[in-house]
């Protein structure tokens, strides 16, 4: 039996197997997205569904002329870039640390990957508890070793609140980078290191010359993915600071949520979503380009 006939026989079975996916995707993915795009062109107060009216481009005009939209965009970008920077640095560092055959390494690895599975709600609660300016243990610790002279108000000043949300994000998602890098490291041929050793390269040189080039590809993929997701994150910010103090930790997802819910302007929220979607398309194109997906397809 030739490969071609295997792939083309029993077509009915193939279509039957794909059918549930197509139906589910149409109903629960394509439809909501289409609906979101449609809503972006309507005035929609959820309390008065009887009053929906066509709005033309006015929702988009609204957000583009709203300073809060632009500051949310800016803050979201800062939040994303700093989170990604720290996640990558710590992620690679921890992965290198874990990439050794040592007794008990499995335990260390398990504990260092653990934050990834802790629910965001739980982390937000714990953060609010340990970073509480008056009764939190972090301030107590910093005060008692004399690192700070007076309590830090972690969630009360725009800068510190931003720092706290970044910390939360880095804490939760660094393991993701660790796992990806670790998986790649395990496939780096050891001969490369041996060769470098023979050439007399020190540990740091070996990292720059051998490890980093090998990690380049996986890091690009991880960074692009993480950038897109981090940019879209809602819960990590909303549960910790609700976007505050003021609106200093708003990102576009929080902006969209607040417009839809608190301001009862579903159309404006949807328009924000559409803008996010367009940015994401651009990001995805970059990703597909960089990762070179589709190449294998030609071989098949």
């Amino acid at each position: 039996m030739s490969r071609f006939s295997f792939l083309s026989s029993d077509r009915a079975v193939g279509l039957l197997f794909i059918a549930p996916f197509v139906v589910t995707a149409l109903v629960f993915m394509v439809y909501p997205i289409a609906e979101a795009i449609r809503m972006a062109f309507f005035n929609y107060n959820p309390l008065r569904p009887d009053l929906v009216s066509y709005a033309g481009m006015s929702n988009f005009e609204f957000i583009f002329s709203d300073p809060l939209f632009w500051s949310s965009f800016g803050q979201g970008t800062v939040w994303t870039l700093l989170s990604i920077l720290f996640q990558t640095v710590f992620g690679v560092g921890i992965a290198l640390l874990l990439h050794r055959k040592l007794f008990g390494m499995a335990i260390f690895r398990g504990m260092l990957l653990f934050p990834y599975i802790v629910p965001t709600v739980v982390i937000a609660l714990i953060w609010r508890w340990i970073f509480n300016p008056e009764i939190g243990v972090v301030n107590y610790g910093l005060l008692s070793v004399g690192l700070i002279g007076e309590p830090i108000y972690w969630l009360s000043t725009p800068t510190m609140a931003m720092a706290s949300t970044i910390m939360l994000n880095v804490w939760k998602y660094t393991p993701f980078v660790v796992i990806c890098v670790l998986a790649r490291l395990q496939s780096v041929p050891l001969e490369l290191y041996d060769a470098a050793k023979v050439d007399g390269a020190g540990a740091f040189r070996r990292f720059l010359d051998v490890t980093l080039p090998q990690l380049r590809e996986v890091l690009i993929v991880v960074i692009v993915f993480r950038t897109i997701w981090t940019f879209n994150k809602f819960e990590e910010i909303y549960l910790l600071t609700k976007g505050g103090p003021g609106t200093s930790t708003f990102n576009l997802a929080v902006y969209s949520f607040e417009q839809s819910m608190a301001s009862l302007r579903l159309g404006v929220g949807a328009a924000t979503g559409v803008v996010m979607m367009i940015m994401l398309m651009i990001g995805s194109v970059v990703y597909l380009r960089v990762a070179g997906f589709g190449n294998e397809e030609k071989e098949a």
Partner: peptide, 17 residues
């Protein structure tokens, strides 16, 4: 690839529709 795109969508887009 359609799936890949879907899995990068922010959930805030889906929730109200």
């Amino acid at each position: 690839y359609f799936s890949l795109l879907g899995y990068m969508m922010p959930s805030i887009i889906f929730v109200f529709p």
